[in-house]
Structure formats: C-alpha cells, structure tokens
Write a protein that binds this DNA or RNA. Structure first.
Length: 182
DNA sequence: CATATGATGGACT
DNA sequence: GTCCATCATATGG
C-alpha cells in the first residue's frame, strides 16, 4: 500500500481495502467490512460539524490514522483523499488470520467469530488505541496494510448505526464472509 | 435463531 | 445535559 492508494475518494478506498491484510506486529487479519465517510456534507461523518478535536484529523494527509472513542470502544479509521479534503474509511470487521491466542486473551472469548466482527471488537483484539491517532499508517512499522492477490466479490448496504445517512450505499463487505459485524 | 435493553465515557452544545 | 460510526447480555421462539 502506498500514498496514492489512500489519496482517492473514500468510497473507492473502502471497496479496494476489502480482501487485503491488516498487520500489527505478530497479528494478522483480512479486511472484510468497511464504511466510507465524506466531509461536511455527509451528515453521518464526524466532519459534518466542521473541524473539531476528533474530525480535524480528517483534513490530514492520506493514510493518517484516526482513532476515537464511541461508547467506550475505540474505532479505527484511515484518512483518504487529498490533504485538506476531509474523508475517511472505517474498518468495521476483520477475519482473524494470525495471533489468535492474543486476540482471544484480549477479547475474553474463544469463538473466532467473536474476535474481530465489529469496529470496537477489532481494535480491542488488535490493541489499537488512541496512541495511534494522527500517525500515518505508511510511516509506522508496527501497523500496516499489505495487498493480497484476492479479488473478493463485494456487496454494499447502508451504513450501520448512523442516525442520518446519505441516499447511497457506503458500507462494503465481502459476500458471504463469516466474520462480518452483527 | 431473533430482537430488546442497559452500560459506557468522552465530545460537543 | 445530550448524543452517539457499540457491545454483551437476556429473553422468547
């Protein structure tokens, strides 16, 4: 993954992330579910109220990590688009591939499908917290995304948990995957 | 299997 | 004080 990958519209990045591999130290997971968020004209986006303590990171360089807390869970996003043009992709679910022992210990469940099947679950399983906020995933070694050669079949839906959504599908997931949220 | 409900804490008005 | 880009339980079929 390079800078040009993230320097595109969040909708394109969200779709193209599916099937690729998130790596944090010894942990690996396949990205199976994402959501795209736009800037101030997107009512569901954190940027809908302009630049705030949380949302201002969305104006940073593509590849910047945005982590913030909702209902006491960390949510992991990656900033997309040109620097100064707010946009981000939320990583919503991973298929656990490696480091299952660690994920089970952190989550307190042994079932594979309970480890990373939601945006708050995967950050707990992977140990992603606010110390990663505002760092660039292209610059730090311990956390990265690598391409797989998989070309998954992609489905879409409305975004989950938002009170006011746009009239288009901005949630993307791999068809039939067992590790989706919900 | 499904839907319902309470806990949670930080950001924002 | 209000509002969540959530989750784990509990309950009913």
């Amino acid at each position: 993954m390079d800078r040009s990958f993230f320097k595109r519209k969040s909708k394109e990045v969200a779709k193209d992330l599916l099937g690729n591999i998130l790596i944090k130290n010894e942990l690996k997971g396949k990205i199976v579910e994402t959501e795209a968020y736009f800037g101030p004209k997107d009512p569901a986006s954190r940027a809908s109220n302009g630049r705030t303590k949380i949302s201002k990171v969305m104006w940073e360089e593509p590849g910047t990590i945005l982590v913030y807390v909702v209902h006491s869970y960390n949510l992991f996003n990656i900033v997309t688009g040109r620097t100064g043009k707010p946009g981000a992709v939320l990583i919503r679910a991973l298929e656990p591939l490696k480091g299952i022992r660690t994920m089970r210990d952190r989550r307190g469940f042994k079932e594979l499908h309970k480890l990373c099947s939601g945006p708050g679950k995967l950050t707990e399983a992977f140990g992603i917290d606010k110390t990663y906020n505002k760092k660039n995933i292209l610059d730090i070694g311990g956390l990265k995304i690598i391409r797989s050669n998989e070309k998954p079949e992609i489905c879409s839906s409305k975004r989950i948990g938002v009170s006011e959504d746009l009239n288009q599908d901005l949630r993307f997931f791999i068809k039939g995957n067992e590790f989706l949220s919900r």
